[in-house]
Design a protein around this nucleic acid. Structure first.
Length: 252
DNA sequence: TAGGCCATCTGGTCCT
DNA sequence: AGGACCAGATGGCCTA
């Protein structure tokens, strides 16, 4: 289980976590050490500095105080990482993959790479939609446009395995409602909520074997966007050339 | 058992 | 000085 924060305690590497008053998490062992050190440090502190005293430089700190400081820093770092993981979870939630108890969570690297591809795809879709909207309102007839629509003309086009993206749905309704070919599309082509994912979804290919390998990350059950498959270019994955993939995976 | 993924600790660096 | 950020090290869990 790769769960981090959200699932505090679900990960066995962080067993029996407890939360301190600052919201930090400790294993029992750590917590015991933490409490012990805290008590000792606090006691030593009151003995040495009854009035609170003024701040000491680090070189002046004794062993207990150094330990106390170390724990404080560790706690901050832990919290920082938890925040980071929460943000990662938030990102996972908006990714076009299902979440659920039976669904393996995308790894961090997979989440980031997929998010990047997803954004690129959305940007591309938006551009194409703008272009088509410009065409529609620019004089070209919808009928002729629809006739040219591959989803209409290419009835023999193999059923697309890709879901219709919401942006594409908007586009279809914009250019004259859902194409008939779409509504007639065989349901077998509709990705089921738990259909095996394809790495080509959203133009997403595994850039580096091992990073996004199947089946570990992407063959677990997941949910695509609801909608009918469409063979139109808008619904196709982005072209992913080797160089593109290289850029996707290597650029920082 | 090896490899992947992760959480945590730790020391260093930079910024306020 | 204190906090945020980062990267390396370490160890645990899980899966193939």
């Amino acid at each position: 289980m790769d769960s981090d924060t959200g699932s505090i305690g679900s990960r066995s590497s962080s067993p029996d976590l407890v939360v301190d008053d600052a919201g930090s998490f400790f294993s029992n062992k750590m917590f015991q050490t933490y409490c012990k050190d805290r008590e000792e440090a606090a006691q030593a502190m009151t003995e040495r500095c009854p009035g609170g005293g003024k701040a000491k430089t680090r070189s002046e700190l004794n062993k207990d105080e150094v330990q106390e400081l170390r724990l404080k820093v560790n706690s901050r770092e832990r919290r920082r990482m938890h925040d980071l993981n929460q943000a990662m979870d938030g990102l996972r939630e908006v990714m076009p993959y299902a979440q659920g108890p039976s669904v393996r969570k995308l790894s961090k690297i997979s989440t980031l790479l997929l998010a990047r591809n997803y954004i690129l795809m959305l940007s591309s879709s938006l551009e194409e939609m703008k272009k088509l909207v410009g065409d529609v309102y620019g004089g070209a007839g919808i009928q002729s446009r629809r006739a040219a629509h591959p989803a209409v003309t290419a009835a023999a086009v193999p059923a697309a395995h890709l879901p219709l993206h919401p942006l594409a749905q908007s586009l279809h309704s914009l250019v004259g409602g859902a194409p008939s070919a779409l509504s007639a599309a065989p349901t077998a082509a509709i990705p089921s909520p738990h259909s095996p994912p394809t790495t080509s979804f959203l133009g997403f290919h595994s850039p580096v074997p091992g990073l996004l390998k199947e089946p570990l990350h992407l063959t677990s059950s997941y949910r695509h966007f609801p909608g009918m498959p469409c063979p139109c270019s808008l619904c196709q994955p982005l072209p992913t050339t080797t160089s593109t993939l290289h850029n996707l995976s290597m650029t920082k």
